[in-house]
Computed example of a mutant assay.
Amino acid sequence: MANLSGWLLASDIDGTALIEEIGVPPQNIEAVRRFIGEGGRFTFATGRSRESAYRVCRDFAVNAPMVVLNGSCVMDPQSGEFLIEHPMPPEIREATGEVLERMDRDHAVMLVTADKYWGVSRSAFGQRLCQRVLQTPICGIYDVKETIYKVLVISETPQEVPAMRQKLGEWYERDFTVVQSGETCVELLPKGVSKGSTLLEAAALIGVDRERIAAIGDNENDLEMLRVAALSAAPGSADEFVRRRVQKVLCPCMDGALAQLIEYLEEQTKE
């Protein structure tokens, strides 16, 4: 029997543990519950907001602090309470105004708080894209009174993203973390914040050493998490630049990549 006591397994959600438009591979849920039964601690590290991540964690019986909002917060999986927070600095509203001036005609711009996406685009194009992508309300930058954790910039097609990512990096990487979080999305996060940095903070809360962290992800925003893990993996369906940077490339997401990683860990820790 495997002994996974002391291990923390962190998984990205979208494109790694599940694909929302298709569903959850049942073997993933079964394997996670087995992993926990063998003494392991399982969590998600996701770009999703608190409310969106909380819906998924119940199905997987998450038993370790969750990294949400791409590393801006650590959340208790039972209560939904934030245990660690890395909010955007006050000057984020001014910076968002600059993003609107530079990009709003061809992109949608959103401010993200704990549970909500706020469309702040001024152009008709940006507002339509906000409403089409996330059905989010449109408001002014200074109308958002809640704590802001990240800024989301969305293009209409994936083909536009490399140029958008490059421009945002050139303009803002000195003051913020700039990361692609989906095929049409680039985010501004607090400087120095990533899934990797915050996963280490979450692990420390439960006394797990870096040498006992395993992680699986599929996109650019997972790279820092994969880098800090002792065992890193990616689904076979992950972006190629992610697959080149991990120790193990597994089957595609919907074939049960997460379950396959757990099976590998079980094999390595058999007593």
Rank of each mutant, 00 (worst) to 15 (best):
D143W: 10
S11G: 04
W118N: 12
E187A: 09
L265F: 00
P235V: 08
E51S: 13
G192R: 03
C130I: 05
E156Y: 06
I216L: 12
S121I: 12
N63K: 10
G15T: 06
P26I: 08
A53I: 00
V249D: 01
D14T: 05
V62Y: 04
A45H: 04
E187K: 10
A215R: 02
A124D: 13
Q268L: 14
E91T: 11
D218M: 05
N3G: 06
E170T: 07
G23C: 08
G71R: 11
D12Y: 11
F60I: 03
P77H: 10
D143M: 09
E263F: 00
D222T: 11
V109E: 09
I148D: 07
A31H: 01
E173W: 13
S123W: 06
R165H: 10
R132F: 08
P158Y: 12
V74H: 02
S52W: 05
P190G: 03
F125D: 02
R132I: 03
E81S: 07
L152I: 14
R165S: 09
C253I: 02
V249F: 02
G37D: 11
E263A: 08
K195H: 08
A215Q: 03
I138T: 14
L226P: 02
V242D: 01
E85P: 07
L223E: 08
V68Q: 03
A108G: 14
V68K: 03
T113M: 09
T269V: 01
M88R: 04
D175G: 12
E21C: 07
N3D: 15
I206Y: 10
V242Q: 01
G236I: 11
A214G: 06
C73M: 14
A2F: 02
T43Y: 01
K145G: 13
N63Q: 12
R128L: 03
E240S: 11
D106R: 15
V179T: 14
A53W: 00
K167C: 02
S232E: 06
C251S: 14
A259K: 00
A64C: 10
L83M: 15
L69E: 14
L258H: 00
V242I: 07
S5E: 15
I84E: 05
Q260W: 00
A257H: 01
E267F: 09
D12W: 11
C130F: 05
L18Y: 05
L231G: 02
C73D: 03
T113A: 12
E211Y: 05
R132Y: 06
Q260V: 00
E170M: 10
C57V: 14
L18C: 05
V161A: 09
A204Y: 02
I138D: 08
L111D: 04
F241R: 09
S79Q: 07
S194Y: 08
A10L: 04
A202Q: 06
L261R: 00
G169C: 09
G97L: 15
E220D: 07
I138W: 06
L188K: 03
A2E: 09
